[in-house]
């Protein structure tokens, strides 16, 4: 790992006001609440950036609009935006997203994670790496990487 920070001085954005769900007064026991964009965003937004003590939401690495869900066809696509083009942390961020989603989503889902087109120097390579089952599994065999991922995911349970 390089000694200096890759993006030493990232722009921190203010947290957006959350769309609030208005709970229906009388609960219909049989009604199905499908998994939607907001729910996925609620799962992901407070993942910590690997470099900085800010959440991915605050750095605008992910936004609610960058999440596409199709609950019926069990498909999910998350598009994230690295803060700088040559960010070597992009794969780590992507790995965090994948691990978090693996832990929170039912197994029937197929998850696509990709970098926002035109925001990263080695976009294609990163995308390929993130969506290769074998390589993800291999990455998770690496204790250093797993520790790093767990650290990023930790605040979500405080």
């Amino acid at each position: 790992m390089p000694s200096g920070l890759i993006n030493a001085n990232p722009t921190v954005y203010e947290r957006q006001e959350r769309r609030t769900r208005n709970a229906p007064a009388d609960v219909d026991e049989l009604a199905v609440e499908p998994i939607d964009q907001l729910e996925i965003f609620d799962i992901l937004f407070y993942i910590k950036d690997p470099e900085h003590p800010y959440s991915l939401e605050e750095l605008k690495v992910i936004t609610a609009d960058a999440i596409e869900v199709d609950d019926k066809r069990s498909h999910l696509r998350v598009t994230f935006t690295p803060t700088v083009e040559h960010c070597s942390m992009a794969t780590v961020i992507g790995l965090c997203l994948r691990v978090k989603l693996m832990r929170c989503l039912p197994p029937r889902y197929k998850v696509d994670i990709r970098v926002e087109p035109g925001t990263h120097a080695t976009e294609a390579a990163v995308n390929k790496q993130l969506n290769d089952k074998e390589r993800v599994a291999a990455a998770l065999e690496n204790p250093n990487l797993v520790d790093m991922v767990n650290e990023c995911l930790a605040p979500s349970f405080e």
Partner: peptide, 27 residues
């Protein structure tokens, strides 16, 4: 985790985290 209700899914995530951290970090 695939419960029709959101509240239950959220609890399930919490529960899963609690139980998987009791043993190892295996995914």
């Amino acid at each position: 985790l695939d419960d029709p209700k959101r509240v239950v899914r959220q609890e399930a995530v919490r529960c899963r985290q609690a139980w998987s951290s009791t043993s190892s970090r295996s995914l």
